[in-house]
């Protein structure tokens, strides 16, 4: 009540100006005839002629009506003030003809586009791959580093029973020309009795030639060749004894001396690295 009176006080003209509009809708009464007579809807015959279409068009704008017997009847703007640009440059030849269905050649057109785009993608993939490999390869070791990373050793320079030390990648490299007795001795050792079990055949490619990195596996001293209780190497720092296969036999070192990668390129030449 309060709200209604307030509304009535503040807005008296609302009610004063309101008017009742009669509903334009008529009740939808569907009369279903129970009679068996067929219902034939009334046909509105309407002839699309140029005259009738033109007559039905509003007079305020430029409209042009066309009709044809075998073709669509249409009403279109007749722009006399706007020139329509020539779009033939953007139309394909197959769609240029007005009397042919554009759908007929659509697969051909799409296939052509896909093929060209795919070809572009292939060329793009090739250039992207070249670009990436070129940039990544700049991170690879340079030629001067690679040239220093390998060392050639003339085997004839090393007499039998002698160990030679070379400098290789900043580390001492031992190359040992072993005698037959040494080979026999290290091969006969029971692998299970070793701290770091490796058979001699796993550590050499040719029995006569033993290649080792001359760094003690304990704390990195350089062992002395042909010394120690096992006739191989002896580390003077903490007393690790290695045999003639570079295996740890006594002392604090945990592992055998490391064997680098090497290969024999000829009878007289070995490349380490």
């Amino acid at each position: 009540m309060i709200a209604a009176s307030r509304l009535g006080v503040s807005l008296p003209h609302v009610s004063a100006t309101s008017q009742i509009v009669a509903s334009q809708l008529r009740p939808a009464v569907i009369s279903l005839s129970s009679a068996s007579k067929d219902v034939i809807p009334e046909r509105h015959e309407f002839w699309h002629t140029q005259q009738s279409l033109s007559a039905s068009a509003p007079k305020s704008c430029f409209l042009r009506a066309t009709s044809a017997v075998h073709g669509p009847s249409q009403v279109r703007y007749a722009h006399t003030d706007i020139t329509v640009p020539d779009f033939t440059e953007y139309r394909r030849e197959t769609t240029a003809a007005a009397n042919r269905s554009a759908e007929a050649g659509s697969v051909d057109r799409r296939a052509f586009t896909y093929m060209l785009v795919g070809g572009g993608a292939v060329a793009g993939a090739y250039s992207a791959k070249s670009l990436v490999t070129d940039f990544v390869s700049t991170m690879a070791a340079s030629a001067d580093v690679l040239a220093m990373a390998k060392i050639e050793i003339k085997l004839s320079d090393i007499p039998e029973g002698k160990n030679m030390t070379f400098k290789w990648r900043g580390k001492p490299l031992f190359v040992r020309h072993r005698t037959a007795e040494e080979i026999e001795e290290v091969a006969a050792v029971d692998v299970n009795s070793l701290r770091h079990p490796e058979h001699d055949s796993e550590r050499v490619k040719v029995p006569e030639w033993l290649v080792l990195i001359g760094v003690c596996t304990h704390l990195g001293c350089v062992p002395i060749a042909n010394a120690g209780e096992f006739g191989g190497y002896f580390c003077p720092c903490h007393g690790s004894h290695y045999d003639a296969s570079g295996r740890i036999r006594k002392g604090p070192a945990p592992l055998n001396l490391e064997v680098p990668e090497y290969e024999f390129t000829s009878d007289d030449l070995m490349i380490v690295g």
């Binding site: 779009f87 953007y90 586009t113 060209l116 572009g120």
Partner: peptide, 27 residues
Amino acid sequence: MIFTLLIGASYYMKRHKWSVMKSRKIA
């Protein structure tokens, strides 16, 4: 050589994508 191919392909793609825009009339 490869950029000749790529330029051709990208020109075609550009025209293809733009043809809708280019052949539109706004009055």
